[in-house]
Write a protein that binds this DNA or RNA. Sequence first.
DNA 1: TGTATATTTGACCACCTGGTTAAACAAAAT
DNA 2: ATTTTGTTTAACCAGGTGGTCAAATATACA
Lengths: 207, 207
Amino acid sequence: MVSEKDSKETAEKKIIAAAREVFLEKGYDGARMQEIADRAGINKALLHYYFRSKEKLFMGIFVEVISILIPRMKEAMSGPVSLKRVIEIFVDSYHEIMLENPNLPAFVVGEIHRQPELVVEMMKQKGFDINMLKFFINQQVQMGHIRPVDPVQFMVSLVGMSLFPFIGKPIIKGIMLDGDDAKMLEFLTERKEFIVEFVLKGLDYAE
Amino acid sequence: MVSEKDSKETAEKKIIAAAREVFLEKGYDGARMQEIADRAGINKALLHYYFRSKEKLFMGIFVEVISILIPRMKEAMSGPVSLKRVIEIFVDSYHEIMLENPNLPAFVVGEIHRQPELVVEMMKQKGFDINMLKFFINQQVQMGHIRPVDPVQFMVSLVGMSLFPFIGKPIIKGIMLDGDDAKMLEFLTERKEFIVEFVLKGLDYAE
DNA sequence: TGTATATTTGACCACCTGGTTAAACAAAAT
DNA sequence: ATTTTGTTTAACCAGGTGGTCAAATATACA
């Protein structure tokens, strides 16, 4: 009973790990069941034994990825602290996630484009919600800590600034930084501080 | 001779138009030669008559897209005008391009991820170069118009803020704006002014 | 006109794709 | 020990894929 469960779990987990790799690398259309099986070190038929179809396997992976992402975004929006701290946490969170999963941004962008409604529905279902942040920003405005701004404009700016370095990494490195890895690393290191300062100034934040 | 050229050009152009549509919509892996032929209203074999392979056809489209994009980005970086005006032109350019080609951002992101070196090489070859803007920003710093900033950090911020609304449109609309089209339109309309003001403040720009 | 040349097509092909199945194998349960 | 249950595999399949080709059609040329 024990060893049975064990082997099932390891096999299933090997599949999930491999599928995650391949789907994140190649996207749904570019991914091949055979390659997933190969990377998992198992027979292709076993994929269909555990997950009925490519679609089902993909959805499993996608749900998992979203489920990991959402809590970390919520976490950044929840602490009842200073605006500066909220922004810092937000930026740090994004950088950490993206450094750990280099293929994530392109993957998510691709899925948003492929099945927008589904992604939105899933994010909603997983409890992604920006009302708390909206409230927080409006409060900061009322207290006179920052100038009057649309919280959505602010948020889109923050996310855009945080995400784009990873989405456009090859362009930034290849064209703006002479293809120099060291420069890119330096750029990313400085990026966090830059964003925080830039955004706070953009909001007329008075410390 | 004349009509021959005409029919060839119209057939070729119908193919290019259809291929552009399909590739931008579905990406390289998701695109099907049959669908391109159908949308062009021609036989699939004719695709291979004009363009030898899917790869070749795709590259043609991709070069074309990049070739349209680059000049408009250079244009924004060239005018010897005020920083504010440069940013305005930049933001306007991006918005115009993205409104005209809704599938462009996801497509480009996908290609950057699929063949980073190739995209970089192609952009370089097409004359994409940020040295002028770097110089301009450094000049502005020296003249005391803005605080000292890394031009690359600035530029990535500007592009990120401009692009992200289009990349993440379904999320913004679906989750942040209650799926309300009118709100989304309003958001995009206000976006341009917001970015200009936000960025200028972020740079400590003194008018 | 007839002939050469370019364009367009239907039929076809080899290969790859996701997916199935029956049988072998391993492990628990009795 | 043997049956029962769950796991893993090799072999296979139908449909789709990019790509080809010879024939048909249109066009330019003499």
